[in-house]
């Protein structure tokens, strides 16, 4: 049994391209879950990371929270959430967000905290408000690292969002879980290839975002 043959067979099968269990549907579901989870994690992680990084305080507390977040097993958390609050999207979102917040939080904190202090001092001395100092001076310089934190989070979410299928939801995990129960390895491998492909596309998108948003002055002096 050759993995490449399986991939080829999976994508060559026309039946995999239509309907509620077709690749377009599953892909769209997967992207939706992933984006939702990333958005929630960013809404939590970015502001906290930016503010703590700006004031350079709370690093130890953040490290503790981040370690705890990483230590919670996503799959176990999913099962526990389903037992507590029943099936649905919420029990899936919770482990995904718990997974994604630590890299966003810690990287953003570190990125802002380690910005060269002398431009920041100059900015204050020239009369920028604290908010301006953060968004006009610190964030543009910290952006490459902040983006890398978001990227790590995004790739982990995409890979882990497959567990949604275990609790009856859709997404690319459907192929893997169904394939497991049906002993259909073609499906499993096809699903895995799709997830890996989606992760690669995500990396590409982050690379494009980096090129678009990071100033040439920062890119080159890094």
């Amino acid at each position: 049994m050759n993995v490449l043959n399986l991939v080829h067979a999976f994508f060559g099968d026309g039946a995999h391209w239509h309907g509620y269990d077709g690749i377009p549907t599953r892909l769209a579901e997967h992207v939706t879950y992933s984006l939702e989870a990333l958005l929630i994690a960013a809404v939590i992680g970015l502001p906290v990371g930016l503010v703590t990084g700006h004031y350079g305080r709370g690093g130890n507390a953040l490290a503790l929270i981040a370690t705890a977040g990483r230590a919670l097993p996503s799959f176990g958390l999913l099962v526990l959430m389903v037992l507590w609050i029943g099936l649905g999207l919420v029990p899936v979102m919770i482990p995904l967000v718990v997974l994604a917040v630590p890299p966003i939080l810690v990287t953003t904190y570190e990125a802002v905290r380690t910005v060269d202090p002398s431009p920041v001092d100059a900015a204050r001395g020239l009369g920028m408000s604290e908010a301006r100092v953060l968004f006009r001076v610190e964030v543009p310089v910290a952006l490459p690292l902040i983006l890398s934190g978001l990227r790590t989070a995004a790739v982990q979410i995409i890979s882990t969002a497959t567990i949604a299928a275990y609790v009856g939801l859709g997404g690319l995990g459907r192929y893997i879980i169904d394939g497991l129960y049906q002993r259909d390895y073609e499906k499993v491998v096809g699903g895995a290839a799709l997830v890996a492909g989606l992760a690669l596309v995500t990396l590409l998108l982050f690379w494009a975002a980096f090129r678009l948003t990071v100033s040439r002055g920062v890119r080159r002096s890094a």
């Binding site: 060269d116 001092d121 001395g125 020239l126 006009r136 100033s215």
Partner: peptide, 30 residues
């Protein structure tokens, strides 16, 4: 405080330039 600082030029060691801005935009800050 911000308007006080804008009325005083401020120069520091190592210049403290904004690396993400061009020279012209650095100077145009205030």
């Amino acid at each position: 405080v911000d308007s006080l600082r804008r009325s005083m030029g401020y120069v520091i060691q190592n210049a403290g330039l904004f690396q993400h801005r061009t020279i012209l935009d650095n100077i145009a800050t205030v």
